[in-house]
Amino acid sequence: MTRKRFVTLTLIPAIGLLATLALVSIAGAIWFSVMNRTLRSADYEFVGLHNFLRLLRDRRFFNALENSIIWEAITVIGTLTLAVLLAVLIFETVKKPLWRNLICFAFLVPVLLPRVAAAFIWRFLYSPSLGVINYLCGLVGIGPVEFLANPSLALISVAVVDIWQWGLFFTVILLKLLETLPREPIEAAKLDSARTWEIHAYVTLPMLKGPLISLTLVKAVESLRSFDLIFVMTGGGPGTATETLDLYAYQMGINMGGRISYASAMSVLLLIVTTMAFVIIWKAGKKWTN
C-alpha cells in the first residue's frame, strides 16, 4: 500500500462522516430557521427572516438572552477566580507530593460526575426541608432559604454547582501548570524579597497568560451548554428565572408545540456566537503553542 492510499483510506471515512453529520446539522438548522416547520405537520414553506424578526419582539427570548449572559459571566469569572486562588494556595501550602496528589484526585471527582447526577446531588443539598445546607443555615439562624425556588437566587444557586465542578477541575490543571514553570524567576523574585502574593501576581501568573486565556475561552464555550444542569435542577423556573437560550430553544422546539423553525432561529444565533468564540480560542491557542 502506498503512503498516499493509506492517507486517503484513514482520513476519508472519519472526516467524511464528521463532515456529513456536521453539514446535516448546520445546514438543517439554517434551513429550518427560514421555514415554518413544526413537529405537528410535515408541510412547511419558506418564510424568510420572519422567525428572526419575531425573536426581536419576543420578551421571553430577551429574558433567556439576559439569563445566558448572566450565566456566562458568573460561571466563567467564578470558575477562573476560584481556580487561580486555590491553585496558588495549594502550590504554596501543600508541599508533600502525596497530599498534593490526594487533593488533585479529590478535585477531579466533581467534574467527572454526569451533570444530571451533579444536579440531583445539589438539589438534595439545597432542599429547604431536608437539605444539609439549610440545616447549617438554620444553625446560624438563617433560613430556611429557598435556593432554587427564589427567582433572584435560583440562577446563582445553579451556577455554584457549575463552578464546583469546573473550578476545582481548573484548579488541578493550573496547579500542574505551576509545577512545570522554571524555578529561576521565582527564586530571583524571592531574593528581591518579594511577598508570596507578589511573586504570583507579577511573575508566575503572567508566565501562564497563554494557558489562562485558553482556559477562559474553553470555559466560556462550555458554559454555553448550560442545559443539563439547569434542566434537572430548576427546569428553567421558577417562572422563567433560570431559562437560558438553549433551554428556551429546547422548550420551544421540542417540549411544547414543537416549533422547530422558531427554535432553529435561536440555535442559529447560538451557533454563530459559539463559532466566533471558537475561532478566537483556536487563534489564541496557536499563538501560545508557537
Partner: peptide, 30 residues
C-alpha cells in the same frame, strides 16, 4: 503525513466538539 492542511482539518474536528447540542438536536429530530 498531513503537514500542510492538517491544521485546517484539526480546526474543523475540534470545532465540532464545541457545537451547541441544541443546534444538532433540532435538525436531527426532523
Amino acid at each position: 503525513y498531513a503537514r500542510k492542511w492538517g491544521d485546517d482539518v484539526q480546526f474543523f474536528v475540534l470545532s465540532l466538539r464545541f457545537m451547541p447540542p441544541v443546534a444538532i438536536a433540532l435538525p436531527f429530530i426532523v
